[in-house]
Amino acid sequence: EQLTQNVLKSYHETCQLRAEDLQRRRWDTFSREEICAYQKKSMEEMWQRCAGRITEAIQHVVEFAKRLHGFMELCQNDQIVLLKAGAMEVVLVHMCRAFNADNRTVFFEGKYASAELFRSLGRAEDLIGSIFDFAQSLCALQCSEPEVAFLSALVLVNASRPWLQEPVKVSRLRRRLELGFQLLLRRTRREGLLDRLPPQGRLRALCSQHVEQLQALRRRHPPALLDAFPPLYRELFA
């Protein structure tokens, strides 16, 4: 019970955007002119913008992790390993809150944007399509805020990440989180959710696709391109 309260409190304290606000604004979409303006941006500028938004979201995930009972008791190597491997996955899970499945738009820089707004990302268009498909499938599960909170914690605290120094300790923390999640689902009669969650490999594949696209971008541009990207983004993905 205590752990559940801690997960929910940590999630609420570090949530970037409130669910009520996202819901209230879900039909506030970019105009045709605004979409065209985004499409006219250079590929480099659009990548930088997206990297900036991803980095902001990841900073909130780091704060979430720091508040999770037991996370800061893991050794420093393992804290970094878990965040490096899981932060982007958590951001993708959170995206289902900021996604309107009725018109396939996502909250981006103040309004809801369709996939076409990201056209200037160039070859990363496939990635955008896959991310939108993932958000759509997660939205279909209609997860509550407490469920998203637990899913975030469970994505992060994963004992099978490579390079962990104390996987047993991580595994123990994960087991407690799983028990808390099961109790929550039982209480809300949502046990069926566990069987309907997308396989873990799907998140991993999306993250690999993101890194591959970034590598392809680097191959096509001078190394100075990355200087304009947020340092945390470079540290995690470059």
């Binding site: 720091k66 420093q76 965040l83 945390l232 540290e235």
Partner: peptide, 16 residues
């Protein structure tokens, strides 16, 4: 840790 200086710093920075 050297490779993850920023992440390391964020983790060290209190609970804010």
């Amino acid at each position: 840790q050297e490779k993850h200086r920023i992440l390391h710093k964020l983790l060290q920075n209190g609970n804010s």
